Simulated assay, not measured.
Amino acid sequence: MKNDLPESAGAARQRAGFLQIEGLAKSFIADQAVFADVSFTLERGEFVCIIGHSGCGKTTILNVLAGLDQASAGQVFMDGREVAGPSLERGVVFQSHALMPWLTVRKNIAFAVASRWPGWPAAQVAAQVEKYIAMVGLSAAIDKKPAQLSGGMKQRVGIARAFAIEPKMLLLDEPFGALDALTRGTIQDELMAIVRATGQTVFMITHDVDEAILLADRILLMTNGAHSASGYVAGGIGETVINTLPKTRTRAGLHHIDGYYALRNHIVDFLIERARPGANPP
């Protein structure tokens, strides 16, 4: 028998997308929104990157998704519920590792795990910590403090901590921006392997076009706000690019894949010609 009862708002949002952003806007100056009318969805298990020039509002959007900031307008729903503040259902990794320097790697992650599941016995917490430390290849450093680790190792700990609480969504704010190219490439490959193994939903900010092409299923390209002859125009999502390259791609083999250069050139052309206020085609 057909059910003629109206679908609940929460059920409709779950059907429309695991994460749903509706009409998001942020203003610091009256009548000059940094961005406006930002709407997009993430499906469960999808990896989405957002790229744009400095000042376009990428980090503000991520902070709103994390519940760390409030939008001037619009709403965010995750798994059918409105995002109204911070939650351990969303793991965040920033460019700075944000580890507690007086605690070992083990205790940094155990603190997060115990906060997520306060009723767990110590042995269960320890097993969870060791599982995710092994996943990022740092078992040998588990009892070291952050001062004894390299920058890349600290970021691995930050990633392990975020995954260890098993969030519904992972938010990454340029987590590899301060790393050297070799370390960055290694951790990118490791992150992609972990995401594939766990089916994690990820929203990531990056300035690195190749990083976005390597990691993302979809890439959101942002424009900056600008003054025009008709008045101020807020920034926003200028274009959404679907990454059709094989999911088995690796950093080392990326430039050998058919379609890579066309995709890269398209994104670079957008950033040069359409994203920045006052930019003109060459």
Score class of each variant (00 low, 15 high):
Leu263Glu: 14
Ala262Tyr: 01
Val136Pro: 03
Asp79Thr: 06
Asn3Trp: 00
Val76Glu: 13
Trp120Ile: 00
Ala110Ile: 10
Ala30Tyr: 02
Ser139Arg: 09
Ala36Trp: 01
Ser230Met: 03
Thr183Arg: 05
Ile213Glu: 07
Val34Asn: 11
Gly259Asp: 06
Gly236Gln: 02
Ile21His: 00
Thr41Pro: 03
Leu149Thr: 12
Gly80Asn: 08
Ile267Arg: 02
Phe163Gly: 09
Leu170Met: 13
Val157Thr: 04
Gln124Leu: 07
Arg44Ile: 06
Gly238Pro: 04
Gln20Cys: 15
Phe111Val: 14
Ile109Gly: 03
Thr248Phe: 08
Thr223Phe: 03
Ile29Val: 15
Glu239Ala: 15
Gly55Ala: 12
His256Thr: 14
His97Asn: 11
Thr104Ala: 07
Gln124Ser: 12
Gln128Ala: 10
Ala114Gly: 10
Phe176Cys: 03
Leu220Gly: 04
Leu220His: 05
Ser115Ala: 14
Arg276Gln: 14
Leu170Cys: 11
Met100Ser: 01
Ile165Phe: 09
Leu5Cys: 06
Asp143Lys: 04
Leu68Pro: 02
Val76Asp: 11
Leu19Arg: 04
Ile50Gly: 06
Ala181Gln: 09
Leu214Ala: 00
Gly278Arg: 08
Lys168His: 08
Trp117Ala: 14
Ser139Thr: 14
Ile133Arg: 00
Glu239Gln: 15
Glu211Cys: 01
Thr104Ser: 15
Pro281Gln: 12
Ala197Leu: 11
Ser39Pro: 09
Cys56His: 06
Gly177Glu: 04
Met192Asn: 08
Ala126Phe: 09
Lys131Cys: 06
Lys107Cys: 01
Phe176Met: 12
Arg13Ile: 05
Pro277Thr: 07
Met204Ser: 04
Glu130Arg: 13
Asn63Tyr: 10
Asp210His: 03
Glu43Tyr: 00
Ala16Met: 05
Asp143Cys: 03
Thr223Ser: 14
Val34Met: 12
Thr201Gly: 08
Glu89His: 05
Thr183Phe: 03
Pro246Thr: 14
Thr60Ser: 14
Val241Pro: 08
Leu99Asp: 10
Glu190Lys: 09
Ala162Cys: 07
